[in-house]
Write a protein that binds this DNA or RNA. Structure first.
Lengths: 187, 187
DNA sequence: TAGATACAAGACAGACCTGTCTTATTTTAA
DNA sequence: TTAAAATAAGACAGGTCTGTCTTGTATCTA
């Protein structure tokens, strides 16, 4: 196994555990045991657990963006391409490993003054809002330039609420209601 | 200090620490130190840390409901009484100790199979949805009976998204956008 | 073949955690 | 006043955690 392959293995294993069981509840020993590597190897690739957390957030974010972009692009142009973000979430919700939003879960666990992790998450969320802006620009032509920001943020709020609440209630009605409200908004 | 006063003191102290620093990051020793009591006293009132967590959730929920009900009731009847839930959140956001939603933060920290805490939180959220339903019934007369459930859930989603995201972004635009979208919905 | 590098395995330090238990003191109630 | 109950203070057990360090083995490169 190559050097970079081991690093990826660490990230994938840690990400899976962090997302499933939580950041604080996942120990270094559990990560190395699950990944089948030695502790010294882990610390040769990462300086601290917090660095693994940053890599975890980046890994999940990259994967999410790729899949979300592919999914929405596969839908017909127009409103349905915007509403597709809720279709994507519905699919995600029904997978076995759905466990809500990793960013929000992680923010909930870290100390309030951990600027490094918090700002990393804020950046990712802002990129997601930008993605929604792009979806709007590409799929709605009667929208004024100045309204795009506000509209993106509203759809973003609906999406985020749907992720968190579907996980909390262990039901998919939040996704359906959010999608419904989004389509009202796009009328 | 009376027996029940000590119990309240434990709950208030623990609640403040849990909400500010997180459930897992707050130790029993920190609670007793802050509350100025002995460890044996704490365990005379609560069987375990998890029991304190349940009390914490109940305490925050009771306080929240009381304040929210008072605030909305103080507004003029009609749509403004519904939109007042976002006005309440705006005020809450600007207090020093705002730190997002305690329920969602706690759910994020506990193990996925902790049914006791998860179902306690689900119950509280469902009561909040019921409260919104009552607000709708009392303040909108052109709404059909069958639409109340769906409308309550949508407003609930907006509120929850606003709490979580204002905390995540450390900004109040999520509250303003949620309120704006809610008023569109009520048109 | 020889040296450098990467890795495995795990002991270890130092700190934290929850919950129990003991002892002594204070408060309450009969 | 006296017995019972509540509390304070803290030692303690048994476990957890992160991160460092040592030792031995494997792999790669020159």
């Amino acid at each position: 196994m190559k050097h970079s392959e081991i690093k990826n293995r660490i990230i994938e294993t840690a990400s899976s555990l962090f997302y499933k069981n939580g950041y604080n509840s996942t120990g270094i020993n559990e990560i190395i045991s699950e990944a089948g590597i030695a502790k010294s190897t882990l610390y040769a690739h990462f300086r601290s657990k917090e660095d693994i957390c940053i890599a975890f957030l980046h890994f999940k974010d990259t994967d999410f963006n790729k899949n979300m972009e592919e999914f929405t692009a596969s839908k017909p142009k127009g409103k349905s391409q915007i509403l597709a973000i809720f279709g994507f979430l519905e699919l995600f919700y029904h997978t076995e490993d759905f466990n809500g939003c990793w960013s929000i879960k992680t923010v909930s666990e870290i100390s309030g003054d951990n600027e490094k992790i918090r700002s990393a998450i804020q950046e990712q969320k802002n990129k997601f809002i930008q993605f929604i802006s792009k979806l709007i620009t590409n799929n709605l032509d009667h929208i004024k330039e100045g309204e795009i920001n506000s509209l993106s943020r509203k759809i973003y709020l609906l999406y985020e609420g749907a992720v968190v609440e579907s996980n909390l209630h262990q039901a998919d009605w939040p996704i359906k209601e959010a999608k419904d409200l989004c389509s009202i908004l796009l009328k």
